[in-house]
Amino acid sequence: MKVGFIGYGSMADLLTRQLLAHANVSPEDIIIYTRSENERLQEIHDLFPNITISKTSQAVFEQAQHTFVCVLPLAVLPVLLENKPALTKDSHVISIAAGVSVDDLKHVTTAAQYSKLIPSLTTSVGVGTSLVNHDVAVSKENQAWLDEALGTFSSVMEVAEENIDLASDLTSSSPGFIAAIFEQFVQAAVRKSDLTEAQVFQMISNSLAGTSKLLSEQGYTFDSLIKRVATKGGITAEGVDLSQDKLPAFFDELLVRTADKYADHHAEINEQIKELF
């Protein structure tokens, strides 16, 4: 059984490395095609010379039982359309593109089996959620393979298509949101003290790592952790009260803005479907 990759950017590289390290996938099982060779591709091939670098995308679809399509959203349907003759009832196509649904993929052909995957950078360290959505035509065996392979290095959660955009905010995008929020915390502390930026970053990053372990290893919820740390009338409670006052509006606006951006992506794909089909 071969596992294919069409496109080889950062997420394809993450998935390849994690599958090789944790799942029952060997270098001989991997076949990759990308239009432009890059440093990531060269590095993974240097590390694992038995990985096959294909000259065509068609060869990947023909040889691989499971093919991860890791190209930009507007490139997904053209790639599949270009390779339509190679897409058969045994082809399991796994798209990682935001804004492209499994129903969109079926405009190319209903012969193939389609799954959608939203990976997260955090799974590169073995902690994080892989969101999946399987079309009804995907066999139980292919669903099980994908879920089990991803499950070796992440928590796999199947999410309905109508919820997958918001769920992506909570998994794939949230490391960026969290980093942006706490970067502002760092800068505020630097403005208010003689501490260096490096010192403040170390303190906050350690606190984040420790908080994560408390949540994952000691069974705390956000609410129970707040109650454990914030004594009523104390200093921490002041910050908690301010957060509860100011942050709801921020996060409501954040989800509105990301939803609008997803809507733009969906509109672009719908326009592309009209042009292609």
Rank of each mutant, 00 (worst) to 15 (best):
His266Ser: 10
Val159Trp: 13
Glu268Ser: 12
Phe153Asn: 13
Glu158Ala: 13
Ser216Asn: 12
Glu268Leu: 11
Ala259Cys: 00
Met203Cys: 02
Gly233Asn: 08
Ala259Tyr: 03
Ile269Thr: 04
Lys213Thr: 09
Lys213Ile: 03
Ser224Asp: 08
Glu271Asn: 15
Ser216Arg: 15
Ser174Lys: 05
Ala167His: 08
Asn270Gly: 05
Ala189Pro: 11
Gln244Glu: 13
Leu146Asn: 09
Leu195Glu: 06
Phe201Arg: 10
Asn142Arg: 15
Asn270Arg: 14
Leu208Gly: 03
Gly210Leu: 08
Thr211Gln: 06
Leu254Met: 12
Lys213His: 10
Ile226Lys: 14
Leu150Phe: 12
Val190Asn: 01
Phe153Trp: 13
Val190Glu: 03
Thr236Leu: 05
Phe250Thr: 11
Thr258His: 05
Asp135Tyr: 04
Ser193Cys: 05
Thr231Gly: 04
Asp252Lys: 10
Ser168Cys: 04
Lys227Tyr: 06
Ala209Arg: 15
Ser207Ile: 05
Phe250Trp: 11
Leu146Met: 10
Asp241Met: 03
Glu268Arg: 15
Ser224Glu: 10
Ala209Pro: 03
Val200Ser: 02
Leu215Asn: 11
Ala167Gly: 04
Gln272His: 08
Lys192Met: 05
Leu170Asp: 00
Ala249His: 11
Gln272Met: 13
Ala149Tyr: 14
Gly210Arg: 15
Phe177Thr: 06
Arg257Ala: 04
Ala179Val: 00
Thr152Phe: 11
Leu150Asp: 14
Lys213Val: 04
Val156His: 13
Glu253Ile: 00
Leu214Ala: 02
Ala137Tyr: 02
Thr236Asn: 14
Ser155Pro: 01
Val159Thr: 10
Lys140Gly: 03
Leu150Arg: 11
Asp245Trp: 08
Thr221Leu: 06
Ser212Leu: 14
Leu215Ile: 09
Ser173Glu: 01
Lys213Tyr: 08
Tyr220Cys: 06
Lys261Gln: 02
Gly233Lys: 10
Ser207His: 06
Lys261Val: 00
Ile235Glu: 08
Asp135Trp: 02
Leu150Ala: 07
Ala230Tyr: 07
Asp165His: 14
Leu166Tyr: 11
Leu254Pro: 14
Thr236Phe: 08
Arg191Ile: 01
Glu148Asp: 14
Phe185Pro: 07
Glu162Ile: 07
Glu162Gln: 12
Glu253Asn: 12
Asp260Met: 01
Ala267Trp: 07
Leu225Thr: 03
Val159Ser: 08
Gln199Met: 07
Ser174Thr: 06
Val186Thr: 12
Asp241Glu: 15
Glu148Gln: 14
Glu162Lys: 13
Ser216His: 12
Leu255Val: 03
Gln187Val: 01
Lys227Glu: 15
Glu271Phe: 01
Gln218Asp: 05
Gln184Trp: 00
His266Pro: 05
Leu215Phe: 09
Thr196Asn: 04
Gly239Val: 00
Glu238Met: 11
Leu254His: 06
Leu242His: 10
Leu225Cys: 04
Lys140Met: 07
Ile178Gly: 00
Ile269Asn: 10
